[in-house]
């Protein structure tokens, strides 16, 4: 693990972004550990714990899988027809080595129906692990910079 370099982390995050933009959600699931979490805190409480604060999303691995199953169903009306997204990942930093914690900035452009483009801007915080030589996601938090979701509306795709 001490051998980790930023370039490897960047490649991994870019790969993940490409899978999500392509809606290859099963391939994305394969990047997660068996106990992975996915969280989006409420905009007014960006540094909270879902045990005692209301989040927008606070999934354990079971609910991440259920979320993917739902998103693949054409009856998930919020994402049918699906949004098109384009993620730009930048400012990737290794902030802790043991365990490996990585932060990155993101801009996600989301296009849907006749809507104006919606821009989701924020910071990712990842807990990563190396399993059988490959990086895997143990925790994944997307912290939005917007003071409120407001015109961003819902977070019905994977942020």
């Amino acid at each position: 693990m001490n051998e980790i370099r930023r370039a490897e982390v960047e490649d991994f995050l870019y790969h993940e972004a490409a899978l999500l933009d392509a809606w290859r959600l099963d391939d994305w699931l394969a990047l997660l550990t068996e106990d992975a979490t996915y969280r989006v805190p409420s905009n007014d409480e960006p540094q909270s714990d879902p045990k005692n604060a209301l989040f927008t999303i606070a999934d354990d691995i079971r609910r991440i899988r259920a979320r993917v199953a739902r998103l693949k169903d054409p009856h998930a009306h919020a994402e049918f027809p699906r949004s098109r997204t384009r993620r730009l990942i930048s400012n990737v930093r290794i902030v802790e080595l043991q365990p490996l914690v990585v932060e990155a900035n993101f801009v996600i452009y989301r296009f849907r129906g006749n809507d104006d483009v919606r821009q989701y801007v924020g910071r990712y915080r990842y807990g990563l692990e190396r399993r059988e030589g490959k990086l895997r996601i143990k925790s994944r938090e997307a912290i939005l910079d917007a003071m409120e979701l407001a015109s961003l509306g819902t977070v019905s795709f994977i942020l």
Partner: peptide, 17 residues
């Protein structure tokens, strides 16, 4: 709080629909 998120809110399994 966990039960809240199964249904309600902008990232829940129902409110977005």
């Amino acid at each position: 709080l966990d039960s809240f998120l199964t249904f309600y809110g902008p990232g829940g399994f129902a409110t977005p629909d």
